[in-house]
Design a protein around this nucleic acid. Sequence first.
DNA 1: CGTACTCTTGAAACTTCTCAAAATGCGTGG
DNA 2: CCACGCATTTTGAGAAGTTTCAAGAGTACG
Lengths: 262, 262
Amino acid sequence: MQRSVRTLGVRNGGTATASSIPAFVPETMGEACTGERCYRCDVRSQSLCSSLPISELGYLDRIARRQHGPAGATMIHDGAPMNFACNITRGAVRLSRLMSDGRRQVTGFLFPGDFLGLTRRQNFPFNVEAITETEYCLFGLNELDTLARDYPDLRQQLLEMACRELDSAQDQMLLLGRKSALERVSSFLLDVFRRQNRWQGTDNIVTLHMPRGDIADYLGLTIETVSRTLTRLRQDRIIDIRETYSVEILTPQGLQELTGNS
Amino acid sequence: MQRSVRTLGVRNGGTATASSIPAFVPETMGEACTGERCYRCDVRSQSLCSSLPISELGYLDRIARRQHGPAGATMIHDGAPMNFACNITRGAVRLSRLMSDGRRQVTGFLFPGDFLGLTRRQNFPFNVEAITETEYCLFGLNELDTLARDYPDLRQQLLEMACRELDSAQDQMLLLGRKSALERVSSFLLDVFRRQNRWQGTDNIVTLHMPRGDIADYLGLTIETVSRTLTRLRQDRIIDIRETYSVEILTPQGLQELTGNS
DNA sequence: CGTACTCTTGAAACTTCTCAAAATGCGTGG
DNA sequence: CCACGCATTTTGAGAAGTTTCAAGAGTACG
């Protein structure tokens, strides 16, 4: 049986060098950023704001509790009561499900601007862990509900966010169920690249904000296979691995063709 | 490279013996079924109804367009404009994403009572195909929106349905990324079993409403591996394959232990 | 400058896939 | 009602891809 189970402690607590992973600090998040204080990338989710009138943004500020945590910290344990939502404002976060024998599936990564806690369940069904040093804002669900009652568009916005997540979850199912290792890694690199380019310049540098183990558990592979595949992409002059966490895409088109998508 | 690409025509159009697949006809769907005509399993989604006052159920009836189609029919093509939602009332339906070279990932199965079209996208991001003969109801999104405007709970209900789907999508990601073939097939059998037992008696018979190829594409395996795994489960006296589409679970606990979940 | 961790590389093992053929099941026509 | 033909399912053997185990290289930090 194929099992990639390693010492659990190492995976969860690899905090020693975790600080060397570059934290994602967006320069600008959307065009509405103002100099002194950027409302959109601060306490509020961009998606959230867009469905509220300006007059309510102050309320959103008041109900938000700012938090920050060190790299490696478990922000939310699987099964924790879900009475708040969360908006990432700095750093990188991973969502994961764990099997009892230690096998892990990373179901997603969150970067600044991403929102967590769309669902209305009793408990969180996954672990939420900080990969790098993180800043985030908590919103009590009760307060958010109050807001949602007055502004149906907010609820609609939440529904649409859930739908986008569902869509990308199904893409990931295709990746995990039918793609080869090469296709998975290629897809992943382009995916991270595109998410970063939402906010930042348009050079071809992809900054990975997570160690190889997280990538492996996200792609349903082992660390070794991820590493080997990256090496192969480098040898084939598709990418250049400038540092461990910094990859340059030499031929975006070539990488795209390796993803298996069209 | 491992690729399970077979003649596309066979997979999509295997209508010759498709009629031999047992269609799912729920005897009772929830306790609210009345004799003469079961409102809940007819035109309306149970989930939908539960958030509406009785007085509006008539409206729901009026805006619903009943449809039915033969086994093997493509109900909705990937990319089709999404201007309606859909409630399955009879039969079995599969949702699938296709890669350009023919590899397929089945992202879900729909049975009576299941709802389709939660998302508000321009186009459907997957294929919707009838496995067996099917009956379903279409709701125009405009009409549904009108209803949702007056009843915020309906919108909340839709959000919760989307969240449940998201949750099960993440479970499926764990299955596809980290589970062995034996664990996948065991998980699948128990999953179908539990979904059926929502509505029907509590014997240990699982009726599969889809051919092996659909199961394989759902579990990220090949037909042969699914077949071999079922054979192994039979030899180990975990299940009994009474007919191709009818499996008896001899030891539910034994099967549960093979799923890898705790 | 050494230690600890992660990442990379190599070789062997294992699981699953591919290819091929036989068996089974179903619908049709005699 | 039975035989035939077609499609699906099962079974077998070999091949391929990924994992596992193991060791070495690189990097960060005290």
